[in-house]
Design a protein around this nucleic acid. Structure first.
Lengths: 320, 320
DNA sequence: TCAAAAGTGTTATCCTTACACCCATGT
DNA sequence: ACATGGGTGTAAGGATAACACTTTTGA
């Protein structure tokens, strides 16, 4: 047994590390029309982020403080994403290890831009291969697929099969369908294969078709946020955090399509929304939609506590 | 804008905190027959846990090291749960804040017990109100419901409605059905209401019907782990990590029931499992099952990479 | 013989998917 | 008139939930 057999024993003679920094990093998402956007700094190469400090009462409040300081943007909905702390993450002097506790925040873009340094960036700028709304992105067939093939081919025999399978599953090879939730797995595969600038080996690094690189592992954190959001819109009414107070069903569909990176079936989408009872008519209509005026809807906030439930999926008991 | 405008700027003049400790804490789960068990230390009041150290290459490996040190148990499947760091979490001298990065691990109990200090505990010992396999637990009607009613009643008028609603949703009040996934919400509600020992106000603290208390916020972490596992068994084939190499469908059902805390419908459960193609017959049968000998099955590990997919739930495009 | 668990078969219902079609507006 | 988006109806297929019933063992 180690020198610190359990958490409540007081003999904490060995303190963790020489230098250890804890960062709070935020993926703040908004939707503008059919564009999914993320709040970024320094012309788009970094996410809002700062060290956890004594003055922060909780992780949540610390994150809010940093984002408001750096972007002038007050946050609504936030949730924790993941905590990263791999060794290779940092090579800064005086810091042995940097832990990054990341959060996902949903909001609406406001009129005032906030701090000058903060900009809203279309997130497909970082992941061009993730937008399938106008069909399979060209970069997939032109650049990614052939280079991943080479990467698998070059691997030692024992690994080759495994790599091929991972490629097929994450990138919809061999007749498989595209799964929009695998954002992180795809990014990590590209990272391993050395196809993104952050991989370090800068052979292929300068390739602009592989998306804008980001500082540190911020692009990985962004991928985590997108993946979480894409998964979550399917079973929790989180899209509404991104919508204005009233909206048409088509605007709502455009927003979901923007996030999912996929086109949706209009009629079935409408049925799905209405059947779930998440929205109600405001009684007004929006003109100038390009066609027939559309009814405006609002989100039924009152339903939220109820609808946390969702489906069971397990065949519950009865007789036997 | 703050003194540290962005993560890549080098003016890191203000370092985070005076004293800051980062702990790795593990919820290690196994199933023995119809008992869901968690690996605990010190007679069951603490989870395996230890500070993150320089020698740990990654968070994962650090966690594995601590668990193996403290319990002698090597781990298979693990996943990150959540990172806790609220101020009130710690009142230890010399430490201003303790961050706890928690993990969920799934394994099978091995023959050798590992370290003498480590024991496998039925997790319903900590959450007696979570086991509905033999109907609604008595503690709910007898103790929890009346005391929660009082707690809501005593609240200022503005809060009363909100408290009543939270109670109804999490504890299946007002005709609602029990949602087994709300483990954490229920524990946090009981904590707020001062009904568990960890709340601090030790009026009701000593009540043994409210489950065994744990050190620090370990019971909260355990609740997080149980909730995650209960959610995950529905859409990922994680149960098999807890099963022996071959098993009968009834044993599998018992395991899922143990985790979910609910009885399942036998025939429909079998159909669900078989239809998903997750198992295959070994060709052998288990005798001495208490009845007719049952076919033995094994998990099809080869299907894992495939089945990461699961259902779409969004009405994907077609014509319009 | 009976309890306990293993299995098979069938039906009603609901949700999802897909298709077809009409309505109202602006250009 | 026609393009664009709004909106309704409905039928096929699959998954789920619920019931009823037979089979095989050990005590």
């Amino acid at each position: 047994m180690g020198a610190r057999p359990n958490p409540s024993s007081p003999d904490a003679d060995e303190r963790p590390e020489g230098r250890l920094a804890v960062d709070l990093t935020a993926v703040i998402v908004a939707v503008a029309g059919d564009e999914p956007r993320v709040l970024a700094l320094q012309g788009g190469i970094a996410l809002p982020s700062g060290p956890l400090q004594s003055r922060h009462r909780t992780l949540h409040s610390g994150l809010r403080a940093w984002v408001e300081d750096q972007t002038g943007h007050a946050l609504g909905y936030i949730e924790q994403l993941y905590t990263f702390a791999d060794r290779e993450r940092t090579r800064e002097a005086a810091i042995e290890r940097r832990i990054s506790i990341s959060y996902l925040g949903l909001t609406r873009e406001r009129g005032d831009a906030g701090a000058a340094d903060a900009t809203w960036c279309n997130w497909y700028r970082y992941f061009p291969w993730e937008d399938w709304r106008r069909g399979p992105p060209a970069v997939l067939a032109r650049r990614i697929a052939p280079r991943l093939r080479v990467w698998a081919q070059r691997a030692p025999t024992v690994l080759r099969r495994n790599r091929r399978e991972r490629i097929a599953v994450t990138f919809a090879g061999g007749g498989r369908s595209w799964n929009e939730e695998f954002v992180l797995q795809r990014y990590e595969l590209l990272w391993e294969a050395g196809l993104v600038a952050e991989s370090g080996g800068d052979r292929d690094a300068a390739d602009p078709t592989m998306g804008t690189p980001m500082a540190h592992d911020h692009r990985r954190i962004l991928a985590t946020g997108i993946a979480r959001l894409r998964a979550k819109i399917k079973y929790r009414p989180v899209v509404f955090e991104l919508m204005p107070a009233s909206f048409t069903l088509f605007q709502l569909q455009r927003a979901v399509e923007a996030l999912a990176g996929q086109r949706l079936h209009k009629q079935n989408f409408r049925r799905l929304i209405e059947q779930q009872g998440l929205v109600e008519e405001t009684g007004k209509v929006a003109t100038a939609t390009g066609g027939r005026p559309a009814k405006l809807f609002r989100f039924r906030r009152d339903i939220v506590t109820e609808r946390t439930a969702a489906g069971t999926k397990l065949p519950l008991y009865r007789s036997d």
